[in-house]
Design a protein around this nucleic acid. Structure first.
Length: 672
DNA sequence: GGTAACTGGGTTTTT
DNA sequence: CCCAGTTACC
């Protein structure tokens, strides 16, 4: 039944066992760099055969960049028979299924998918009614509200509990928050909006349904889940409901790399697999094919305690340079040291793309980015601010959503406000005029236009006219182009650098053209946004070489020959924000482990001695000192230490220099 | 009344 | 450096 010839020779015994395991439930505990991707890809190909068609295999991966890589790998050795396998993130797969069967999920076919930024915008509007503004005491910001909502949903815990545990400073607002979230849910339903969490909840609910469940289950013969330590309870439910008896199920994970606790992920789901599936077979992969010995020595020295997989990675690539611990005078020195080492590596023959700078928090690379710009080192940044969060991109997406789903008030709100002279109140009033328009919203537009003050009227009329025309076009490519054409004028008024922004959007239009519908193009963009633009010029072209800057979270599952890890200092790594619980600190520890194990040949740690701290740890918080001390001690034991000097040379102080300069200018002001 | 310009303060990680 | 609350202007 299975094709053994398809199993690659270079697999080791354990990997081979995983790949050729029969159809019962299987858990692969795979340490970092142990060939997990290759093993999973080989297993997909092995499963695919006369008994199982490719399009009946579901491969759930995480994050999207890892998904792309995995699918490419499967395709490379695949037989391309019986269609393509279903591969992607939980969210992307859920979206694909729900979009194809919207009515079965009691959704209008034209529903809009909204991203977290949209959620925050919507909450911002609804906040006023929920009594969360001008309350004297500082109310949580919209983005914070969105985080709390997300956390409640993904952990399936009540607001009060979540707020007290993770957002204690918002404890006074629990009542308002719960009113806000009720209003938010009602608004979504009323306006055909679906957020990221809804995708999973809808999928799970349908799987639990007596009629729909079996039909959804029957779509797949085999289910493979990567990064299982990072699933939350909703995702774990989905997996369990897809394969109630574990038949055809493969899960891969390593609980030492669980870093998504804030999103409701819990490695306990991985530990619980044995209880859920009594026949569970377990394979352990501990042989590391990625890193050289000194990197592994550091990784093993700092490997966090893990319940599932007590292993010491054993290497296969031989020796190499010792990791460096560069102690820097301050942040500016750190930035220069990184630049210098990046260039040094280039001189020894590496490309920029062979190196990555991994940071705990997106803003940790701010100073470095300036320094890189000065040194003319091109870079792309993953994580943190994304392309889809740039204001002009959001404007474009909102216009697209109006064309697709005219009852999307949030999109209207944004589009209206883009015009000069339209603020929040006017926008709201105009939308109220459009309100009861289900079928033909653009027809109601002339009446709504009467609400608009004369100054803004012609511009607004032109934009909306353009969108109405776009809505009439059948082809995705023409639609997208027409939308951009309609936006051109307001964008030019709004943004000083409209030229580059419109160029950005032109690329987006080109990308949308290759998708079957605007819905799909917009959803793709939301679920798998391209990397943030570097500057406003857009990411470097792919044929150019560039350095990667990424958050550690976004670097998951990826590797580079050289990895730079800045900010090894209390409050940054480990993060100040993780201190309210011991679990938070444990996650910081695992995060550092993930970061170190991304490196193939060399790791460089940077420890600035002085740093800008605007927060002080509160009394009720745990101290990070033990973790910090542990990490530094481990690093000192393994690394070669370098001390980098002060940021600036000392220049002697000159008394009253400014007065001298002013006096020298005085002659210029004389009018005689 | 509502919008735009100004000024002070500031809780991270992602689908 | 980005957001929220405040003042000034239409």
């Amino acid at each position: 039944m299975f094709d053994l010839a398809a199993v690659p020779d270079q697999l080791n015994d354990e990997q081979r066992r995983a790949v050729t395991h029969e159809t019962g439930p299987l858990l692969v505990l795979a340490g970092a760099g142990t060939g997990k991707t290759a093993t999973l890809a080989a297993r997909v190909r092995w499963l695919e055969g006369p008994g199982v068609a490719a399009d009946r295999i579901l491969l759930l991966t995480f994050p999207p960049r890892a998904a792309d890589e995995m699918l490419a790998r499967v395709a490379a050795g695949g037989r391309e028979r019986g269609g393509r396998i279903w591969g992607g993130t939980f969210h992307a797969i859920a979206h694909r299924i729900i979009r194809a069967h919207a009515e079965s999920f009691s959704l209008p076919p034209a529903f809009s998918l909204i991203d977290p930024a949209d959620t925050a915008d919507l909450l911002d509007v609804l906040r006023v009614d929920a009594g969360l503004t001008s309350t004297g005491r500082r109310a949580p910001r919209a983005a914070t509200c969105a985080d709390i909502y997300m956390r409640c949903v993904s952990t399936q815990r009540p607001v009060k509990q979540v707020v007290l545990a993770a957002y204690p400073w918002c404890a006074d607002f629990v009542g308002q928050l719960s009113a806000l979230f009720r209003a938010y849910v009602a608004h979504k339903r009323g306006h055909a909006l679906v957020d990221f969490d809804d995708l999973l909840l809808l999928w799970r609910a349908a799987l639990a349904d007596e009629a729909a469940g079996p039909a959804l289950r029957a779509l797949f013969d085999a289910v493979l889940v990567d990064e299982y330590q990072d699933v939350n309870s909703v995702q774990a439910d989905i997996v369990r409901m897809l394969t109630p008896d574990g038949h055809g199920l493969t899960c891969v994970g390593d609980d030492a790399q669980a870093v998504y606790g804030f999103r409701g992920a819990d490695p306990a789901h991985l530990h619980a697999l044995g209880a859920t599936y009594p026949g569970l077979a377990v394979v352990r992969l501990a042989r590391n094919y990625r890193s050289r010995e000194p990197v592994l020595a550091l990784a093993n020295a700092i490997r966090p305690q893990a319940d599932g997989l007590e292993l010491t990675l054993s290497g296969s690539r031989g020796g190499g340079p010792a990791p460096l611990l560069v102690r820097c005078h301050d942040e500016a020195t750190q930035a220069r040291e990184i630049c210098a080492r990046v260039l040094e590596a280039c001189e020894s023959g590496l490309e920029l793309r062979d190196q990555a700078v991994l940071v705990r928090s997106a803003n940790h690379s701010d100073v470095l980015e300036l320094e890189l710009a000065v040194a003319r080192i091109p870079f792309v940044k993953y994580g943190g601010l994304r392309f889809t969060e740039a204001a002009h991109v959001k404007d474009f997406l909102a216009a697209g959503r109006i064309v697709d789903n005219p009852s999307d008030d949030l999109a209207w709100f944004r589009l209206l406000r883009l015009h000069d002279g339209i603020g929040p109140m006017l926008a709201r009033r105009i939308i109220d005029k459009l309100r009861p328009a289900e079928a033909a919203p653009f027809d109601r537009w002339p009446a709504a236009l009467a609400t608009v003050p004369g100054r803004a009227r012609p511009n607004l009329a032109a934009t909306v006219g353009g969108l109405a025309a776009a809505a009439a076009l059948p082809q995705t490519a023409e639609r997208a182009a027409a939308i951009l054409a309609a936006l051109r004028a307001p964008l030019q008024v709004r943004y000083a650098d409209a030229g580059t922004r419109i160029a950005d959007l032109q690329r987006l239009v080109d990308a949308a053209a290759s998708r079957p519908s605007l819905h799909e193009a917009l959803a793709d963009l939301a679920l798998d946004p391209p990397a943030a633009t570097s500057g406003l010029a857009g990411p470097p072209r792919l044929d150019h070489d560039y350095l990667v800057i990424s958050t550690v979270h976004s670097a998951k599952g990826l590797e580079w020959p050289v990895v730079h890890l800045p900010h090894l200092v209390d409050g940054a790594v480990p993060s100040d924000m993780a201190l309210s619980t011991p679990e938070g600190l444990a996650e910081e520890h695992r995060l550092f482990y993930v970061a170190v194990t991304r490196a193939r040949d060399q790791v460089v740690l940077y420890a600035p001695l002085r740093m800008h701290h605007h927060r002080t740890a509160r009394d009720d918080r745990h101290s990070y000192a033990p973790l910090s001390r542990f990490l530094h001690a481990a690093a000192l034991a393994v690394c070669e230490r370098v001390d980098a000097g002060p940021a600036k040379p000392v220049i002697p102080r000159v008394a009253a220099l400014a007065a001298q300069v002013d006096a020298s200018l005085d002659a210029l002001w004389s009018t005689s």
